[in-house]
Amino acid sequence: MTRPRSPGLCALALAGALVLAQPAAAVTLPSPVLATAGALRMAGSGEMRWFGLKLYDAALWVQPGVQPGGDAAQPAGAGQPLNKPYALALRYTRSISGEALVTASLDEIRRLGEADEGRLARWKPLLEKALPSVAPGDTLVGFHEPGRGASFWHQGQLTARIDDPQLAGAFFGIWLDARTREPQLRARLLGLARP
């Protein structure tokens, strides 16, 4: 014998399913980002794994009307597909020291073609201020204003404002440059592939 279902119970179950269906990377952006950029929408999201271990969930937020994947079929070395302000949010699943984040960032910037060691040395203290140590559940948000620079937040608190367009472009290129080490994550962030 089948029992009739309660409409209230069905609604509660549906609401729970919708909450659980939200992407893990869906985070609230810091209010200064929203004030500067206006309404942003999530273009795409994905996760970063290293030797099978999940390091973080990532989400790319863009302005309405911006189609970040529209010119993503660029040849290697063509750079980044976005020229309007955008935010990249990373929610970590593991503890990582700020030193490790900075070292990995500089290594990737170097791998993507930055060969000026003097410039990299000048960028290191700026990244050290921007990228603190993270614990599981922590979120880092970077807001890139192409041609101007970038701002960084940890757990909603501003850590640094970098007024160096070259450093900002090089940093976000780690994820968005056509030569990224993680092309599948790039495609997901740009909305070209589903997670």
Rank of each mutant, 00 (worst) to 15 (best):
P165G: 07
E99S: 12
F143K: 05
A89P: 04
G8T: 14
S151V: 11
E108C: 02
A15E: 04
L40Y: 05
V141H: 01
H144T: 07
D164C: 10
L101A: 01
R188L: 02
R41V: 15
L88N: 06
F51T: 08
K54Y: 03
A43P: 10
R5K: 14
E145I: 13
D177M: 07
Q155Y: 04
Q157A: 15
G65C: 13
Q166C: 03
G98W: 04
G69A: 13
G38A: 12
I96F: 05
I174Y: 09
G147Y: 08
L12V: 15
A168L: 08
L192I: 03
L185T: 00
I109K: 06
L12A: 15
V33P: 00
A21C: 13
F172E: 10
M1C: 14
P32W: 08
P23G: 10
V141R: 01
P136D: 06
A15W: 06
L189K: 01
P125N: 09
A193R: 15
F51P: 00
D71E: 14
M48S: 05
L60V: 04
G149N: 07
R49A: 09
C10N: 15
D57L: 06
M48E: 00
P7A: 14
L126W: 02
A160T: 05
L20V: 10
A168M: 07
A25T: 02
R161N: 10
L112A: 03
R91M: 07
I174E: 08
R91L: 07
V141N: 03
W123K: 00
A17D: 04
S45E: 10
A168F: 09
Q155D: 14
A26Y: 10
L185N: 01
P7F: 12
T139L: 06
P30V: 02
G8S: 12
A187K: 09
H154W: 07
R5G: 03
L18P: 09
Y86K: 02
T103V: 09
A160C: 07
A24I: 03
V33W: 08
S45M: 04
R49F: 08
